[in-house]
């Protein structure tokens, strides 16, 4: 039963990933990536990680994908690859190198990993319990946890600063307008 679910979910994940790379429209790419995230979330559940399943769905499939879709629609950058490549041999070379990497990575995975069924039984019943994860997170990994908080804060500040420039410019433009208007008024 587990194997059947794994095969179906893995197929969906692979289809989503390939379709994301192949799709011409960036919105379609984002939606295929969403499909892939959902499939990987199910795989997390299959690997006894209910907490990561929830996080994957809320943070990745929820927040991050909404951000992507928003930006794609905001910029109107769905289709910008209609023009041919500036470097003609770039695409074939990229595909060739990618396929080589895939073969090497899969061969390494085949050689290095265990095909024996993983340990099971009673240990798995309590494994992946959100409480156990939280206990580890707030004791052994407390410092990294705090640093992650700082990283998120810095990211928020960074986003605000990066997108502030346009507002400044329009304010300056507004001031310029007011100045010229005043000058014109004085002339009259």
């Amino acid at each position: 039963m587990d194997t059947l679910i794994f095969i179906i979910t893995a197929a969906i994940a692979l289809i989503g990933a390939v379709a994301m790379v192949v799709a011409r429209n960036a919105i379609h790419s984002a939606l295929f990536l969403l499909l892939n995230f959902g499939a990987v979330a199910v795989l997390f559940l299959l690997l006894y990680s209910p907490f990561l399943f929830a996080i994957q769905l809320t943070v990745y499939a929820g927040a991050i994908m909404v951000l992507f879709l928003f930006v794609v629609m905001l910029l109107g950058a769905e289709r910008i690859e209609d023009a041919p490549d500036q470097i003609a041999w770039q695409r074939p070379l990229g595909i060739g190198l990618g396929v080589v990497l895939m073969l090497v990575a899969m061969a390494t995975a085949l050689r290095a990993s265990a095909f024996a069924p993983p340990p099971g039984g009673e240990a798995l019943a309590t494994f992946g319990d959100p409480a156990a994860l939280a206990a580890l997170l707030f004791t052994h990994y407390l410092l990294p946890f705090q640093i992650t908080g700082i990283i998120l804060l810095v990211a928020v500040i960074g986003v605000v600063v990066l997108n502030q420039r346009g507002r400044h410019r329009s304010e300056e433009a507004g001031r310029e307008d007011a100045r010229t208007r005043r000058r014109e008024d004085a002339r009259r």
Partner: peptide, 21 residues
């Protein structure tokens, strides 16, 4: 239960597709 190697194979394939993209 599904052996770990299958997951690693899938992970390698997904990673390579990302690199291709």
């Amino acid at each position: 239960m599904v052996p770990t190697a299958y997951y690693i194979l899938l992970s390698a394939a997904l990673f390579a597709i990302g690199v291709l993209g």
